[in-house]
């Protein structure tokens, strides 16, 4: 049995390493962080005489199982390193790069410049563009001149300041808005809304897990979105806040600044 599990692990090591690599890339980990996490995963897989592999009974593909195990390991690892600190719902909505930026600025107290310096060079422009979209969860440090110059912030006009304030209010209230919006809905619809709006999951992925055609899910989503908009507006939410939450559909789709290698244009 032990030998079988060891062989299963070794045979699938390239797959495991690929899932780890994709996870690290999605979560925007640095090279050192990625190496650490890779070790954590391997230790987890061999711990307790391959208990994780022994628990696999073949109800899904091994690739799917290992993907879930590695995502769980990542979130555990993140909690271990950071405590139970959580990125804002808005950061999650905007994608992994926004989560990283939220972490560096709001958890670690870095300035935007410091956060950029601590991140890969190719992410920095996107991080500067994302910074003004994140809600202020803690008192922000005062930016240095360089940070202010490069920050894609509002143009300072009364209109843009008003928009920024509204967006911050909506950001801060996103989870409350969502909680109010999904109350009383069937669980499947609640889950669809949460995955789409708060986690930025694509409707195609939701359709796959629900065992439905993507078009069916899309139609359902459109119906729910209309109902939610009307319902939230009746509850007194400002129409523009509601539109901002529901219309942007997962912000940048959960992959801000993270082009997929197979769809690049060179």
């Amino acid at each position: 049995m032990h030998m079988d599990l060891e062989k299963l692990l070794l045979d699938n090591l390239p797959l495991i390493e690929r899932i780890v690599a994709v996870t690290c890339r999605r979560q925007r980990l640095t090279k050192e962080e990625s190496e650490d996490f890779g070790s954590v995963v391997k230790i987890k897989l061999i711990a307790n005489d391959y208990a994780v592999l022994r628990a696999f009974s073949g109800r899904c593909t091994l690739a799917g199982y290992l993907t879930a195990v590695i995502q769980h390991a990542y979130l555990d690892h993140r909690n271990h390193l950071w405590g139970k600190w959580r990125p804002s719902a808005e950061a999650k909505r905007l994608g992994p790069l926004a989560v990283r930026l939220d972490t560096l600025m709001n958890r670690d107290g870095m300035t935007l410049d410091e956060a950029c310096t601590a991140s890969p060079a190719e992410d920095r422009d996107a991080m500067r563009a994302l910074a003004p979209k994140l809600p202020s969860r803690v008192k922000r440090k005062v930016e240095g001149t360089a940070g202010l110059e490069s920050l894609a912030a509002s143009d300072g006009s009364p209109e843009s300041r008003l928009i920024d304030e509204e967006r911050d209010r909506a950001s801060a209230g996103l989870e409350r808005i969502l909680a109010a919006a999904v109350e009383g809905l069937p669980p499947e619809d609640r889950l669809l809304i949460q995955l789409r709006v708060a986690n930025g999951v694509s409707l195609a992925s939701v359709a796959r897990s629900y065992g439905q055609d993507a078009r069916q899910i899309y139609r359902r989503w459109e119906t729910l979105r209309r109902q939610l908009r009307a319902s939230l507006e009746r509850q007194g939410w400002d129409a523009r806040q509601v539109a901002w939450v529901l219309e942007s559909e997962g912000g940048a789709g959960g992959e801000t600044g993270a082009p997929r290698p197979s769809t690049g244009v060179g």
């Binding site: 690929r18 890339r25 995502q71 609640r190």
Partner: peptide, 28 residues
């Protein structure tokens, strides 16, 4: 489904699993 609609921790694992699976497919 009922559990995922209620439990933010499991939902996060589930959402990351879906998104990582998509990224893996895109990289094939």
């Amino acid at each position: 489904v009922v559990h995922l609609a209620e439990c933010a921790d499991c939902r996060e694992v589930f959402a990351e699993t879906l998104q990582t699976t998509d990224a893996l497919r895109a990289e094939e």
